[in-house]
Design a protein around this nucleic acid. Sequence first.
RNA 1: GCCACAAUAGCUCAGUCGGUAGAGCAUUUCAUUCGUAACGAAAAGGUCCGGGGUUCGAACCCCCGUUGUGGCUCCA
Length: 645
Amino acid sequence: MINITFPDGSVKQFEAGVTPLQIAESISPRLAQDVLAAKVGGVEWDLSRPIDADTDLHLYKWEDPEGKHAFWHSSAHLLAEALQELYPGVKFGIGPAIENGFYYDIDTNGHTLTSADFSAIEKKMIELARRKEPIVRAEISKADALKVFGERGEEYKCELISELEDGSITTYTQGAFTDLCRGPHLPSTAPIKAVKIMSLAGAYWRGDEKRNQLVRVYGITFPKQKMLDEYLALLEEAKKRDHRKLGKEMGLFAFSANVGQGLPLWLPKGAALRDRLEQFLRKIQKQYGYQQVITPHIGNKNLYVTSGHYAKYGKDSFQPIHTPEEGEEYLLKPMNCPHHCEIFRAAPRSYRELPLRLAEFGTVYRYEQSGELHGLTRVRGFTQDDAHIYCTSDQIKDEFLKVMDIILYIFKTLKFDNYEAQISLRDPNNKEKYIGSDENWQKAEQAIIEACAEKGINARTELGEAAFYGPKLDFMVKDALGRRWQLGTIQVDYNLPERFQLEYTGADNQKHRPVMIHRAPFGSMERFVAVLLEHTAGKFPLWLAPEQAIILPISEKFNDYAYEVKRQLEQQDIRVSVDDRNEKIGRKIRDNELNRVPYMLIVGEKEMENGEVSVRKQGEGDKGSVKITTFAANLTEEVNNMINQ
RNA sequence: GCCACAAUAGCUCAGUCGGUAGAGCAUUUCAUUCGUAACGAAAAGGUCCGGGGUUCGAACCCCCGUUGUGGCUCCA
């Protein structure tokens, strides 16, 4: 008998050689039906693989990432099996599970695969899955593996095998298909009920553009058809919310080939929106003791040589600007930190000034690879909501707490109710990779961990994810469709204070080096507007909406009254316009509903007589008539409630 | 940057075999003056991404470039 320890700490006894699936069956038939994968003694384990010794056991279902992973990994094998049957002679690269589904890289051996083939592949996969073939794990010697895959002409697999250690090689077989694979896998392909081939793409073997190009077939599968339908509906919805589409529709921003790739042009409505976001952030930053600064868009090349950025990114960046002066070179500013360090150096600093918090909506330029540019989320010129905090190492924790306050306030105000945090620390086995003293690192890492605990934030900790110059804390939000976006970053930096020789005079009348903290709650204005657009589907909260209300006269006879209402509302700082087109009221309502204007104010004979407006809320319909002043007061209150919660 | 695909009216898109440009919406004008999600009529609107080539003739075929999309690699 062996002892199996469960995640809740309980221990049960089983016969040696019992499988995780049998254990699940002993707990409940329902669990046995739902379980997809297991972890045994910290090792990913197949459900049908026997356990021989005392150990602990995790069972994973669809809801667990590990469960989905096994499901999609087995689906990748199913795809390969289908491709092998449909197109004999194809050779296989690798076929892993990914965040949403899986892919398989194949060498089609001359056959051209197009999206017209998708339905045939899907059909074949379903047909194979219905055979409910068991997926069988086998351990194989390196020599045998090379022989088996070599005979089948699987050159890519052979290359992989030749790099593996003998004794660690396993294969998985279902039906007539055998793949080199570490696992784990489902016990059989039976649970795969719904299949969708998503797309094709070219991918180089091992990501190396000098090697063969393979065809990457992307797919996704689910245990229920309904889940696939929901997933496809979600993709449809995401397409509708695409910020590039909404930005064009709503007149927020544009791009021009004449201006250049990745250089957004902010249209009047987009610029006003951005300005409102900046004001919002400025206001709270002021409360938290930040001081606004302004620095130029270019800087002498030597500044970036000092900061170290030139050595690291100079070649892959916008190239230096030359002046009539021989040998004089300037760079477009790729980040604001060096400029802010010079502001720190502009005066002798005392410990009494710390923490010194310098904020700037600083526009920076980075030469991103052309293939990486994407709408507003990846551009070559963008404005960071940047700030640098210069403080002592004892102040790090308190500063983190304050920045987290700002970030959480933003999330709350903009209704990003679902967020995660990640703490990135150094790799404890590789300490020499990092700059700064061991003591400082420990202090900073401890400060971040404590700050998260104090805020009640359940942050994931990743070792080895820190930058070479300091640990950091990142926030990820989930938008209305459940997609994750990285938003706020707080980053400790020991490098730049060193490079710029920053100093302050301490209470002991000695010179000390400050610590620097980089932070950007939005990341960049561009990226944040993009995320906000996709999160809200363009229906901005009232306080941000480009137009808060639009007045719809029933007919042209009431245009004068409409403009009088507009004048009165504008006096209360309400953003309002008049739809004075010669159209029927139904038409005006429809158009402005589609334009996402939060309030429509319908005015005709009745309203004019009583000094009223008939209020209609976007998406909700008729709300009845109120006095103009009442509407203005209600709207102002609604806005205030949104930003002062 | 690499690979694949794409670019036609302000927007979304059609355009067959290479024979000289089309729809819906938006716009303008006319008509209408209307009560909570599309009234009607007409007009105007084109460097078919740019350049070169093949051809009697190119939106369409070929080459080069630009920009975009998806993926790969990258991300201070």
